[in-house]
């Protein structure tokens, strides 16, 4: 049996087929394909207070999405912060339980930020205000492409090897990684990868490895889940 990998989902008004603005739960299919190609069996996990679902999951992908509610890290929402509080409430419970159970977790973009918040860290709510540039989200539906640098000896450095190119699309970023270790940074110093060496597999990346079905990362998650 393949390892079962849960992927968290969005809930939003979506338009598809004959339907307009229908409340829908979904996740970009890139995540599904990335998990499948890496040898996992994906199931999608709509937000709910129940965390017993982790009983059957061998690994967890925290997918991208809207901003994390600033209340979760003790800040007031800023004007450009857009949140889905229901999803936050459910996912923060899921993350905390997954960490308690030592379920392997890969956090992507918002998912990385959620790992940081669960570890007691904080976020920048709008990076252009802090960094003075828009290179992490150049334009709608355009990924910012850059090379990251990784801490030698870290998990992410080992996984990435010589190809350091990453694709980013985010306007928030990690200010303080809390109990997590920052193991990768962009050229401007922004944290791009976080890890928790105290767990079997806890890795957060600020970029979008699912878009290229990056088997280096998804394969590592599935391998950890198979143990």
């Amino acid at each position: 049996m393949r390892p079962i990998i849960g992927i968290t989902t969005y809930v939003d008004q979506a338009t598809w087929g004959v339907w307009r603005d229908l409340p829908t739960t979904f996740v970009p299919h890139d995540y599904v394909e990335a998990v499948t190609q890496a040898g996992g069996r994906p199931v999608l996990i709509p937000p709910h207070e129940d965390v017993d679902v982790l009983r059957v999951l061998d690994g967890l992908v925290l997918a991208g999405g809207p901003d994390v509610s600033p209340e979760l890290y003790g800040a007031e929402p800023e004007p450009l912060t857009v949140t889905r509080p229901d999803r936050d409430r459910a996912e923060i419970l899921l993350v905390r339980r997954a960490l308690d159970m030592d379920v392997p977790v890969l956090g992507v973009c918002r998912g990385m930020q959620l790992l940081v918040v669960a570890a007691g860290g904080t976020l920048h709510q709008h990076l252009p205000d802090v960094l003075g540039h828009e290179r992490h989200r150049p334009a709608p539906a355009v990924y910012g492409e850059h090379d990251a640098s990784f801490v030698p000896g870290s998990r992410i450095a080992g996984l990435m090897g010589d190809d350091l190119a990453i694709r980013c699309f985010h306007h928030q970023g990690v200010a303080d990684a809390g109990k997590l270790t920052v193991t990768g940074r962009a050229e401007d110093g922004l944290p791009e990868a976080v890890e928790d060496p105290g767990h079997k597999f806890v890795l957060g990346v600020q970029w979008h490895p699912e878009v290229v079905r990056d088997e280096r990362l998804f394969g590592a998650l599935v391998a950890a889940a198979a143990k």
């Binding site: 829908t24 599904v32 069996r41 999608l44 709509p46 679902v53």
Partner: peptide, 29 residues
């Protein structure tokens, strides 16, 4: 505008309302 694994929330809410926990099985594999 994305290709997504998806389901109307009405199904998810129906299962949750009667005491179940919904997970989605995607058709790709």
């Amino acid at each position: 505008d994305v290709m997504a694994g998806m389901l109307p929330m009405t199904y998810v809410r129906a299962v949750h309302a009667v005491g179940g926990r919904a997970v989605l099985i995607t058709p790709d594999d």
